[in-house]
Each structure stands twice: as structure tokens, then as C-alpha cells.
Design a binder for these strands. Structure first.
Length: 428
RNA sequence: GCGACUAUGGCGAAGUGGUUAACGCACCAGAUUGUGGCUCUGGCAUGCGUGGGUUCGAUUCCCACUAGUCGCCCCA
């Protein structure tokens, strides 16, 4: 076979068999969001490049090397969105939703994101994020709510081996104090660290703590922890968040080195990881945090915010790694088997009538023989098969066979819908 | 972006510098003339990721490209 076309690198087709799982996962996530009072927002897949430069931060990896940026025919600089928060905040500001009577405004979104990265298992160039944003409140209870919601989604789907990791980056003052302490700590011996870290010292010293290469260097162990530099207010906030999580019975661990890759975070940051064995490098299922300065950065009034984003691909991979079977619906209620020309004509009408009635019904379109039609019905997971041939037509009946038991009875065509409806109701 | 490994039918998977590219699953047909799941029989890659090169001859050797996987980086 000639491979004339191939899917672009790092992208995926979701085929029947898997698409049901996607639908199920998205359905659960949506309905839980609704239960927590979050409403859907849909924003474009591309935005002005400037939005991400300002929103995500131009020292971040995302902006520096991962954006799909292009110029349109009108000369505009546009970018396929690499994340969902900046667009939501843009919409929030643009539509003046800070004036909405619903405060805080609680939103969720679901859709593809794009990052130009080297693909591997669990990492794609186009991937789907499901995320929430709560704008307008700096109540630590909403930090806890957002984390609870994320955990709830995973648990509702059947994941067990997951871990919530939290940290606090503090407010601007705390971050500044910590940053100065970091620069002081590393400056003299910065040449001992990797080249990336030498750059980070000036761009974003916080990220040095996250470096995997230098993780065992003695300077790391003695590096100042952000948690020691939280001012009273920030410390009190973090304490309250932890207190609420505990009150909700949600287990968590604190990792003072949890530094997230986007510039806009302050105060609470968190990740949810999979602990399923054999789950590779892409163990981060969900990431989020508070971004109190972002709305202002995008041009709106000072408005606090917090949110998370989770990857559907990684969620499905985690379900797979834990061996969780999703209760996805499949199969047919009835497969109509026709033998002969006249029966075929009747089958076409009958199938449509049963579908209009609300049943999941199908028939043969390949001119197959009785036997092959039965086989097809079996393969499609049909609960019942309704067979019509000359004899049945004569009596205006169908021979209805229950596939699991093999039992077969004749049912008048006019009563077939009700017969099936009743029997299928009894099955579940 | 760097390093390593991999690429054979719808899927999994053997294999060789040279007449017919194993096998398993799936699929199709028949045994069973109107009854699926079991069994048996038969069928099913002029083709070995793409493009070049070496050679009398390459799926098998070499190069490039493409894609996947793993590690680094980063994250969702």
C-alpha cells in the first residue's frame, strides 16, 4: 500500500472504539463541572500571538520554542493556542464578564491545544485539555474547590493511583524576596550548574530548583525554599488552603520545588500525577494554580483567578495503565435480518420505524446471506435479531431471536417495537 | 532541539543478498438448501515505511527522509 498521506507528526486520530471513551470521559467531566457550578466557555483555537507573549510569559519554554505561530493573509501574527487560560482571560476581559452578576465567574472549557514539541508517549503536538477557571475570588476555599473538582473527575472515572501535589509560590513580595535569596544563593557558584541553569539565574531563578540535571548538586539541597519566604499573608493563605483540603478529606503532599512552567502563577500551584506503575515520563495528568495578576496583565481590572488543565490523552492513558474499563455503551438493540427481495423492502421500512421508536437498530447492506447476517448481528453485539422471510411476511410477523439465550419467538410486526422495548428494559 | 532503538498483510509476528515472504488473529466462502458464537476445509502481501545508492539481482547491505518508542528537555 502506498502511504500517500500521513497524519502530521504528534497528532492522533481517535477512531471508533476509542471515541466512545473520549465521549464518556468528557461527559463525566462536564457533568461534574456543572455540579460544581461551572459553565462552559468556548474560545477560538487561535489567538493573536501577543496574547500568549503577555499572558504566558516570554521567558517560558512554551513561548520561546513551542508555539505554532503564523501570519495570516492580512498580515496578522496569530498563534494556535498552546494553553487555555490566557484565551479565557482574554474573553473575560473583552466581554467585560467582570461585570457579570455571577461572581466569582466559574468557567470550564475543553478543546485542542498545540505545542511544537518532540512527541513521545503521552506527549503530542495537538492534545486535548479539559480545564476550569474561577475568576473573581481570592478565597482559599475556591482553591480547594478547584483541586477537589479535578480529583473528583479522576475518581469518578475510576482512577485510584493518583497523587495531588501542592505548593505555594506566595504573592509578589514573597516571590521577590525568594528570588533575591535564590540569586544570592547561586550567584557565586553558578558556573557549577548546567548551562540552562546559568541562563535561568537571570531569567527565572525559580526554575533552577526544578532542574533535573542539577538536582543532586549540593547547592540544591541548601537552596532557600519558597515556603520559608512566604510573608505572613501568603503563609496564612496557604495554611487555609491546606486546612480546607484536609477538611474535605483530600490527601495531598507538599512539594516546595513544584514550580510550574507558566509565568502567571502565584500562591497556590498544584499537579496531579499518576502513580500507576509502568506509566512513563508523562505522569503529570493535571496542572494548575492561582494567577492573581493575569487579568490585569491582559488589560482587565485587578481580578484574582485560579484554574487547572488536564489532558484527556493522559487521563485515558492512566485509565489504561490502571486497567479501568469504562462503561461505554456499545451494541445494538436489534439487527433486522431479511431473506429475499420482498423481505428486504420490508426490512428497510421496519428498521426505520424501530429507530424512530428509539431503538438502536441496523441491517445488512452488503447483500449477505441469512447466515452471514446472523454473524454480523452477533459481531455488532445485537441483543435481538428480527428475521423476516417469505413465511414471516405471509403472517406479518418476525422471528425474533434473543442472541444470548438463542430463544426465538414470533412477534407480529406491529408489536415488534413494544416487544423489544419491554424485553430490553428487563435486561438491564 | 540532542542521543539511542524500531518500521514486514486489517492487527500481531517470523524470515532470507537470488525460484512460491512462515505462522497466529481478524476477514471472506463452503461443510449446514432459512439461523450467530464451537469445529473442519479452502481463500486472503506481484508486497516487506518513503526515496536514492551498492549489486548480475535487495524486503534483506549503505545513505537520506518520514514516523513511532525510550532517554534528555519540558510539560498536559
Amino acid at each position: 500500500m502506498s502511504m500517500a498521506f500521513q497524519i502530521p507528526r504528534g497528532t492522533q486520530d481517535v477512531l471508533p472504539g476509542d471515541s466512545e471513551k473520549w465521549q464518556y470521559v468528557e461527559h463525566i467531566a462536564r457533568s461534574l463541572c456543572s455540579r460544581y457550578g461551572y459553565q462552559e466557555i468556548r474560545t477560538p483555537i487561535f489567538e493573536h500571538t501577543e496574547l500568549f507573549l503577555r499572558g504566558v510569559g516570554d521567558t517560558t519554554d512554551i513561548v520561546q520554542k513551542e508555539m505554532y505561530t503564523f501570519e495570516d493573509k492580512g498580515g496578522r501574527a496569530l498563534t494556535l493556542r498552546p494553553e487555555g487560560t490566557a484565551p479565557v482571560v482574554r474573553a473575560f476581559v473583552e466581554h467585560k464578564l467582570y461585570g457579570s452578576p455571577n461572581q466569582p465567574l466559574k468557567l470550564y472549557y475543553s478543546g485542542p491545544m498545540f505545542r511544537y514539541e518532540r512527541p513521545e508517549a503521552g506527549r503530542f503536538r495537538q492534545f486535548v485539555q479539559f480545564g476550569v477557571e474561577a475568576l473573581g475570588s481570592s478565597d482559599p476555599a475556591i482553591d480547594a474547590e478547584v483541586m477537589a473538582l479535578a480529583m473528583h473527575i479522576y475518581e469518578a472515572l475510576g482512577l485510584k493511583r493518583i497523587r495531588l501535589v501542592i505548593n505555594s509560590l506566595g504573592d509578589l513580595d514573597s516571590r521577590r524576596a525568594h528570588r533575591e535569596a535564590l540569586v544570592r544563593h547561586f550567584s557565586n557558584r553558578i558556573h557549577e550548574l548546567c548551562p540552562d541553569c546559568q541562563t535561568r539565574l537571570h531569567t527565572n531563578p525559580l526554575r533552577i530548583l526544578d532542574c533535573k540535571k542539577d538536582r543532586d548538586h549540593e547547592l540544591m539541597a541548601t537552596a532557600p525554599s519558597i515556603l520559608d519566604y512566604l510573608n505572613d499573608e501568603s503563609r496564612a493563605y496557604f495554611e487555609k488552603v491546606k486546612q480546607y483540603l484536609t477538611a474535605l478529606g483530600i490527601p495531598f503532599v507538599i512539594d516546595a520545588r513544584l514550580v510550574r512552567g507558566l509565568d502567571y502563577y502565584n500562591h497556590t500551584t498544584f499537579e496531579i500525577m499518576s502513580e500507576a506503575e509502568g506509566f512513563g515520563a508523562a505522569a503529570t495528568l493535571c496542572g494548575g494554580g492561582r494567577y492573581n495578576g493575569l487579568v490585569q496583565e491582559i488589560g482587565g481590572p485587578e481580578t484574582p483567578g485560579i484554574g487547572f488543565a488536564l489532558s484527556i490523552e493522559r487521563l485515558l492513558a492512566a485509565l489504561d495503565a490502571e486497567g479501568v474499563e469504562l462503561p461505554v455503551e456499545s451494541g445494538l438493540d436489534c439487527y433486522v435480518v431479511a431473506v429475499g427481495e420482498r423481505a428486504k423492502d420490508e426490512a428497510v421500512r421496519l428498521v426505520y420505524a424501530l429507530r424512530r421508536f428509539g431503538l438502536r437498530v441496523d441491517q445488512d447492506y452488503l447483500g449477505r446471506k441469512l447466515k452471514a447476517q446472523l454473524k454480523a448481528a452477533d459481531r455488532l453485539g445485537a441483543s435481538f435479531v428480527a428475521i423476516i422471510g417469505d413465511e414471516e411476511l405471509e403472517r406479518q410477523e418476525a422471528a425474533v431471536k434473543h442472541m444470548a439465550s438463542g430463544e426465538q419467538t414470533n412477534v407480529p410486526l406491529g408489536e415488534l417495537a413494544h416487544f423489544l422495548h419491554e424485553r430490553i428494559g428487563k435486561e438491564e
